[in-house]
Each structure stands twice: as C-alpha cells, then as structure tokens.
Amino acid sequence: MRSLAEINDKITRKRAVVLTVEELKARVAEVGVTQVAKETDVITTGTFEPMESSGAIINLGHTDPPIKIRRAWLDSVPVYSGFGAVDLYIGASCAVEVTDGEEVRERGGGHVIEDLIAGKPVHVRAQGQVTDCYPRATFETTITRETINQFYLFNPRNLYQNFIVGVNGGDRPLFTYLGPLQPRLGNAVYSNPGAISPLLNDPELQLIGIGTRIFLGGGVGYVSWEGTQHFPLQKRLPNHTPIGPAATLALIGDAKQMDARWVRGCYFKSYGPSLMLGVGVPLPVLNEQVVERACVTDKDLVAPIVDFSIPRRVRPTFGLVSYAQLKSGRITIEGKTVRVAPLASMYLSRLVAQELKQWIEAGTFTLTEAVSPIPMERSFLPQDRWTEF
C-alpha cells in the first residue's frame, strides 16, 4: 500500500495519520481492517516495566595525571571497568556495596542511572592500575551528566515479547524478580502489558530490526541487536503470538537526551534493584497485514502460570491464562480464585505510546529502515552440566 519513504515524507510534512495501538484496535472494531489500513500511516506501541538487563556506558574523561581505572564505584554501586582507562559500565541490577556495620540500602545501578539522567550529582571512587602512562593510583570526585563525556544506555535484554505469570504453591513467602509471591497461591504477578506491548503487535518481527528507531527512556534510541535469551522459536498460537517468553531486543540510546520520568530505579524486596523503563516502538502501516497483526486483543494472548516454589530451571506450570483474564484482577487456579497484579504500569505504557505519537505527528520523529532483520531461528541453550546445588 505504501512505502516507508512515503510515510516519512508525510511525517516531515506533518500530514501522517498516527494511531496508538489502542486507538487502532478500537478503530478496527468500528470500520474493519481494510479501511483502517487505508487511512493510517503509523501505529505506536509502548510499555513501562522492569527491565533489569539494562545498564549504561559512561566515559569520565582523563584525569591529570591519568588513571587506568580497574575498580570503581558510583554512589557505592560497583561498576565494570575492564576495558578503556576511564570507560565504565554500570548495571541496573547491581546493588550498593556495603561494608561491615553499614545499613543495607535498597538502592542499585538503576537508581544511579536515574539520578544521572535527572541531572543529580553522583559520587565516583576509583582505584587504578599504575603504569608508566597511567601513574595515578586513586581518584575521587563528583559527576553529573554535564561533566562526563559519553553517557548512553546499552541494554542487553529489553522488550520481552511475552513473559510468565508467577505464583507460589509452597508454604512460605517467596521474594522474586516478579516481587513477593504469597504462599499457597496467595497471589499472582505478571509483567507484560499484553495487547499494547510492542513485540506482541509485530509477532514475527517483520517491521522491527537492527537499526529501528524507537522511543527509549524519553529520548531517541535504536534496536542494536537481538537481545540475550532471544527465543523466537517459542511455541505460538495460530495468530503467531508466543505462549511464553520469546523474542527480546538489545537497545541503545543517548541517556543525556532522556527524561527521568521514563527511567526509574526500583527495588524488589529481598531480591534486589532493577530499572523501570519506558520503551515505545513505531510500526509503519505498509499493508493490511500490519493492521491484522496489530489488532490482536488481550483475549487472544496467553501466558503460562509458573510455580516458583519449585527451585529448578524448568518449573511446573498451571497451564495458560489470557491477558484478558489477568487484567480482570482475578484468575482461577485448580478451582481457587487468585488475585493478580501487573508489574508493568498500564497507565504509563499508554502514555509512552501517546508521547511517541505526538513526536511523529509533530514531524520530529521519522522511521528508519532496518539494516538487518532480527534472527527468528534462535534456539535457547541452557547450562545442564551438573554442579552441586
């Protein structure tokens, strides 16, 4: 029906018709797929959820005399320093390092990243490897995003195409990456926002590839590679959506252009720190099939209910449940009614899609051709060699 170049021309002339994915689904219910495909140029999707496999690259700039940093901490959070002399990588899920007698603080790399994006000062402490060209042994200072060179998010695994529902069939509370799970099926938690989630509206990643421009943390980002644990071969329904964790993406973007509203450090009790991140993906309406895939509803999407009380890689499940059931706030497991809560913020996920729509309508955000597709044949390899538990 139309090309990406034609869509971008309409965007730059501020004539593109843009719908959020929720608006699109409602419009399809009114006038059908064919009419919506004729009148729509871009669909915007969004999510705001924990993405702990995230982090930031920071270049401090050289000191005088120079230092070759080999150990460093940002606000007491250990950072990786095993490459360039003053290049650092801070992981979102790395916790504050405490010494004997210090109170454990519920803070980690995600909070430091948020603070830097917000323009707040962050304390740096570093130890160096003394060499002839790097004679300095230690360094301590305070930085902000304005006093460092590069500061960009590089996230190895974001945007799970689908995920699990966590429950606890045991007899004691469990503290997990989904939050607290109460014993004897006391509650259930899910993390994916369902029908508004980016990758569930392009289930075979025909519109998303390496180089796709996206909304990342309130700034412009890009898909840089397949994500870690990318598993597109997950079993799928007839509508091509996966029944559990499937595709993932690695993302990158300039953190100096981001907004702390969309990058928030968080902490899961007795589990550790993480990062809440807003990500929005635009889907160009190149043909009717794009609209057909994007009009999937929560009743057409499912996730597995997984019992965390079994401490194994492969845990038993209580079957599949639709996102429509999850969003009702109650599901039934073996005859028992179980209350359900999402980790993703549905409200903020909608706002991500709306803000991306506004960017496109204003002509400030055009779409990009992928330079290479995301592989769709990756298997998932576990580590099954026996080690003592």
Rank of each mutant, 00 (worst) to 15 (best):
G219Q: 08
L116Y: 04
V220Q: 15
G32Y: 07
C266R: 02
P342Q: 10
E106A: 03
V290F: 00
R339S: 09
V167I: 04
P193S: 08
A85R: 07
N158A: 09
S379I: 14
W225F: 13
G227H: 04
V31T: 11
Q354S: 12
G84V: 14
E49H: 04
A250C: 11
P135H: 13
L216V: 09
I143Y: 08
I67V: 15
T34F: 11
H62L: 14
Y160C: 01
V291W: 03
R157S: 11
I210M: 07
V279G: 05
F268K: 06
T366A: 11
R350M: 06
A26D: 15
E369S: 14
S3F: 04
V340D: 02
D300S: 05
P203F: 00
L301W: 01
P316I: 06
S93N: 15
I208P: 07
G179D: 04
I305G: 00
L4I: 09
R71M: 04
S349E: 01
Q182H: 12
L185E: 08
V96I: 13
E23R: 09
Y89W: 10
V17D: 06
A370M: 14
Y134T: 03
L159D: 02
G194M: 05
A247Q: 13
E204L: 13
A362M: 11
E23T: 09
V285N: 13
Q161H: 03
D64Q: 10
C295W: 05
E30S: 13
I43Q: 04
G46Q: 12
I148F: 00
G280L: 06
R293V: 12
Q289N: 10
N239H: 02
G179R: 01
L367Y: 04
I90F: 01
E52W: 11
G128Y: 03
L237E: 09
Q257Y: 00
D41N: 10
V122I: 11
T337N: 15
C133Y: 13
L326V: 11
D132S: 13
P232V: 09
Q127K: 11
Y267K: 07
A92H: 08
S3M: 07
N59H: 08
R313E: 14
F389I: 14
N155A: 03
G221H: 00
G319E: 03
